[in-house]
Structure formats: structure tokens, C-alpha cells
Design a protein around this nucleic acid. Sequence first.
RNA 1: UGGGGCGUCGCCAAAUGGUAAGGCAGCGGCCUUUGGAGCCGCCAUUUGCAGGUUCGAGUCCUGCCGCCCCAACCA
Length: 567
Amino acid sequence: MSEDAEAPRNDFLRKRVREDLDSGRVQTVVTRFPPEPNGYLHVGHSQNIALNFDLAAEFGGRCHLRFDDTNPLAESPEFVAAQQEDIRWLGYDWGEHLYFASNYFERLYETACHLVRNGAAYVCDLSSEEIEARRGTLTQPGEPSPYRTRSAEENLDLFQRMRAGEFPPGSRVLRARIDMASPVLPMRDPILYRVLDAPHHRTGADWPIYPLYDFAHSLSDAFEGITHSICTLEFIDRRPLYEWVLEQAEIAEPRPQQIEVAPLLVTGTVMSKRLLRRLIQDGLVAGWDDPRLPTLRGMRRRGYPPEALCRFARTSGVSRTIGFSQQSRLEHEVRAELNERAPRALGVLRPLRVVIDNYPEDHEEDLVAVNNPQDEAAGTRNVPFSRELWIERDDFMRDPPKKFHRMAPGREVRLRFAYLVTCTDVVLDDDGEVAEVHCTYDPETRGGDAPDGRKVRGTLHWVSARHAVAAEARLYAPLFQSDDPLAAGDDFLDDLNPDSLEVVDPVWVEPGLEGLPAGTQLQLERLGYFTVDPDSQPGRPVLDRTVTLRDTWSKIAARSGGNPPQG
RNA sequence: UGGGGCGUCGCCAAAUGGUAAGGCAGCGGCCUUUGGAGCCGCCAUUUGCAGGUUCGAGUCCUGCCGCCCCAACCA
């Protein structure tokens, strides 16, 4: 997955790795992606995944997948399965290197005992509230626990009894003995172990105590020989603690190095689990795989190709500046990918009936359509044509503005792959709305070219009314209105885009589209890329619009005060 | 007001102290049986601000300004 022909990436991370290799500090680069199995992966994770796997691949090293499963309260085996599936979908493979922090519980425990013996950790009997009260504030030092001075012997005894399950949850913790007055808050005697009466999805009831992040993560990295431990910027204050643990555990050089990078933020969405859960619980979206969500599952259902996600992650770059990447960049990658491989089809979203008056009533014929102009090997297909057709409402105007290159009274346009037709009449309904348009066709222009060489400006998509297949289309827009919904107001839900989903039913598509398996991707010409949704029924497809095509006309129309096309 | 991080084009992001890459978006144009795709061109005399060092500063120094993170027995 690193065959990209992009400009050589030259970020600070790569430079650092190169230096470590050149100096001989490390022989082989070993990275890891360490998710907690407590939810579904999202775009933000994709950057982390791509970063770690790409970096290892680029320098001939390896990347581990390690589940950071040290909090049984939040984790479940469903998530470890789902996360693996999502990572594979992105195109990455950890080979033999699948690990679980829970597999290290015994080793971690022994290491903790080692710290206790050396006086680097102690058992504290303070309650959670008391510990908090003594932590001090950002500007004031904390005050030492009264249990801080317990002897190593007593601490070891107590810690062993914690492990034996003698104490109830919350009654005691193991703490690092560092510095209650440290200006770095995580260094104020952080908690290393807690007592928990909770079954773990992998170790069951084996452990009444569980290690916390700072202790477990640093040592897990060390146990696996991780050389570069990449995390996001918010962990930067914990680096001293990360290093302290490795030092106290007497981990041999080269020790893993924690390197912090800015997270990948995307405009117009939210990524935190808490917020996503709220959207789902409040019924604002359908579920974790709702195509509007930035979850990998949602994006997969929406039809975003994994390659596009990876390119988006890579081209977003790695830096220490926190900023939002624009959704338009993601969409650019999605289009680039789909343009290469999505077969084209004809379909009409908002139908307007067209009658070709001079076309024989009962006649029909097959016309040859190109499957993918980007890929000659994709070949051609036959599309049925007849007297009555559907065209897009937006493609007709009775009184068109200047740059409108579509159908209008008296004007000749091309029906894609079919004929040149001229609009001769317009039928209005009782409300004065256009109900039907009449045209004549030029039989000499079969296929779309005029023998006399005359040109027309517009080419319209269409579908034969008699042959059309009814489908449901789901059109999506960003879930939120602001780039950063969290900064938009008191409640991020206030920023919700009420029009993030538009269901159009029925839409008419060319025959052949009714039996496609879920996940099939195609381009409805001029309308965008679509993916067959799993909700599809036999003979009744549901199409998710992945992304529209670039639409220059809408800009022109908007500027000239014309009719901006819908959908 | 403690500690830490960050400020280069609307967005993302490069630049051994040597005279501001690239991508996205945008804007012109060419081409076109998708107003798609493709192609060509334009788009930072300037790097948060103010000083200083230097022949030379986005890069070094000083002082400001602004934004973000840290006080879970979560990760």
C-alpha cells in the first residue's frame, strides 16, 4: 500500500527515523497501531494506521497491531473483531504481529513488583476523591499521600494482596513515587494499578487489578521492541512519565521513543466516540455505519474507497500543528480513485418526461454506451432507447439564462450515446409547472454524432421510460454546517445540518442496475458516484451517493443568478 | 498567574542561515458525446508582531501577541 507516486514525504517524523537508522541507534524500525477495543475506528484513526504501517514499510521494518485492552469496563471482543476488519479493509496487514496488552498482565505485574521493591511505587489507601483533592492545581503543587512513606516490604505485601483479590475496588491503588510538586501534572505520583471487579474479555476473572495507560503502554512498547511509539499531541505531557516507567523498569537501550504528532481533524464532522454515540442514540443517524459518519464503516458503506482514505491520510501530512483538513480534499481523493474504476451508467434523479414525437410508437432499439471513458478495457454495453424517456428536470428550462447549454424550446441537444433531439413543445400541468416536453429526433444522428458535422453544446443523460428500473437514491451532505461543530456553539447538535440526508424515491436507472450486489460502485453520468446499499431489495436497488462530480455549472448558475441544480 | 505545544497563501504542508516547494480550494483558458476527466496558465516581494545578530533570517537571539493541551482509579 505504499506504491503511491506522490512527492517524497519529508516530514519531521521520517527525518527522525532516518537519523535513528543512520546513527545506528536502532537497527530495525518497529512501530505499532495500538487501539483500545472500545468502539469503531474512524478517519482520524486512518491517519495513525497509515502513518505507522507506511513508516515501517518505507524503512523495511514492521508494524504491530496491539490492542490496548487494559480497561475491561469499556472493551469488548466485538470491537477487536471490528477494528481488525476495518484495518484490513484499509489495506494493511500486521502479519504475525497481533498483540494484546492483556497478554502482558503477568509481566506487567512482575515489573510493578520490581518498582515496589525499589521504592519507586507504593500502595495508597486514599479514596479517589482524596487523591484528587491532594493533586494540587495547575499552579499549586500537590500534597503527598500519607501512605507515601510506607516501607517497600509493606508495599509489596499490600500489592501482592491486591493482586490476590483481598481488597475491594477503589480501596487501594498502586502509585508511582515521583514528585507531588511537579509542574507536570502526570508526574504527581500517578496511579499505576487499580482494583477492579470486572471480567476482562480475554483474561476473564484472572485479575482483580488492572494497570493504567501510562504503565501498560510504555512497557508494552518495550516488551515488543517498539522503536518509535507514535501518538497524538495530547499525550505530550505524559512523555516524562513514559520515560520514567522505562527507566524504573530498567529497560535496555534502545528504548522506545514516544513521538507526538498532530491528530487528523476533518471539517464538518465530529469524531469523538462520545459524540458519535449521542448522534446514534438520539436517532439523528442510523447507526455506526451510517454513510454520513466519519467511521470507517460509515465511509465504507458510503462508498469511499480505502485507497482514497489512505491517500487522504498521507497527503494531509504529519506535523505538530493542529488544524482541520477540508472535506473537499477527501472528496478529491475519492473522485480520483472512482474516476479510474467506476463503471458509468445512466440514471435520472428528478425525472421529466420527454416524448420523441417522430419516433415510432412501438419501436425500441439498443444503443451502444461506453462503460468507462478512462478505461477502454471496460468495454461497452447496450442501453435501450424508445419513444418516451426520462431526463433530468434540471436539464430543461423554458426560459434559459445565457450559459445554459441544455434543453430549451427550439434548441437542439444530444442525448448521450443516442440522438440529437430538438425541443418542439412544452406541456404544462394545472399549476403551470412543466409536465412534459416534446421533441423530434434526427435519425441520422444515431450514436450522437451528426453526419453534417454540426455541433451541439449540451449532452444530457436519459433513460427509456419503458425500460427504466425504479430505485431509491440517498443523497448526502455534510452532517454539520460548521467546519468545527464543537466550536460552533454550546451544543454541537445545534450545528447539525438538517439536510444531511435526502432520500429521492423513485429515481429511474437503466436496466441492469437492479441486481447488483451491495457495495457495487458506479457513476451515474453527470450526477456522481454511487454505491449499492445493503438495504437494497431484489429488483429494487438503493443507491448511496458517495460524492457528486465536480460541478462547474452550479458555480456559473449561482454567479449568474440562474437556477442552481438540485441534488 | 504552573508546565507543555504550536503560529509559512482560504485549508493542509515543504524549505543544511543563502534569497518562500507541492496539494486542495479558487480564478482564467484549451479540449470535450459526462458543464466529468484531461491539459495550460494565474494564485505569499513574504513566513503572528516588534526589535536585534548577520553580507544574507521563515530558519539564530530578545521581547510581545494569539491559539491549543494538561488537575479520569479512561486511553
